[in-house]
Design a binder for these strands. Structure first.
Lengths: 145, 145
DNA sequence: TTGTAAATTGAAATCCAATTTCAATAAGAG
DNA sequence: CTCTTATTGAAATTGGATTTCAATTTACAA
């Protein structure tokens, strides 16, 4: 937690940017956040305790996190950009419940290797990828029969 | 070509919808299209010969193709919905050049199997997935050194 | 501390693709 | 041919992303 904060502050000062109370509040809320919040998710969550923090500030701050490498933006095709902390695993993909939106992170070196192989077969240099599996989670299977 | 047109006409009449000259023109252009056009791509292409066909009509018609199963919509994260004909291969994913946007379709049963395995491991029932590999194509590698 | 230049903030405006509205027009069943 | 219903195109609307701008705050220097 504090480590992340230190990294962010360092990144800011390196770039001549400033450490503000809003940025601290947003960072704390983001790190405390379990899931993969969108700008709006985080904005609404902050609203309660910090009604003075505007949407634009949340938006800009999340983008800044991503530029500083402490968060990564994701597009799961639901029309909103989501962010996740980059702390834990280096790389992973997502298994998403189509009903409730629950997200499980997974990592499979065999799939990574196959992607590399496919790119090579076509003469491409692999840069990045995006891989989402959509399904129904155990809870929703029970709920929906 | 004509086969697709027949399927589309059948689908329309089953739903009480009408076969119009605009729909024919758009279908022809779509099938003649090589790549994965967005609504705008197709609209601009048609503009030349058919300046009377509006954007909204292209938009609605592509959506209709997708509902009738003769096209599928794709989101490659470039901010535009793209469509591809569903004729050829049943399922495939995409290898996309980050520089020029060139798209290669690929299919790998080993990856499909691994996805199934991952979903099962987490108790999910697999429904669909989205898998894009982004890289640099041979031509752009040469061009960019 | 205090002054000041530069960054930040929040509200509102703007952007852009997607989507809808609506009055005029066209399809097609009877 | 007629009449009902779907379609069309232009324009308006929606919704998230992004920018603008005047007021405010930070960081650093004196």
């Amino acid at each position: 937690m504090q480590e992340k904060k230190r990294i962010f502050r360092d990144c800011l000062s390196e770039r001549g940017l400033k450490w503000t109370s809003q940025r601290e509040v947003i960072l704390d809320a983001f790190l405390r956040c379990d899931s993969h919040p969108s700008t709006e998710d985080l904005y609404l969550k902050l609203r309660k305790k910090h009604p003075n923090i505007g949407y634009a500030t949340v938006y800009r701050t999340l983008k800044l996190f991503s530029e500083c490498g402490i968060a990564a933006s994701r597009d799961f095709g639901d029309g909103q950009t989501r962010y996740e902390s980059t702390s834990e695993a280096e790389h992973h993909d997502h298994l998403i419940c189509k009903d409730c939106g629950a997200i499980v992170e997974f990592e499979d070196p065999r799939i990574e290797a196959l992607q590399e192989e496919i790119a090579r077969q076509h003469g491409y240099v692999l840069l990045t990828h995006r891989h989402e599996i959509f399904g129904r989670c155990p809870a929703c299977q029970k709920k929906l029969g």
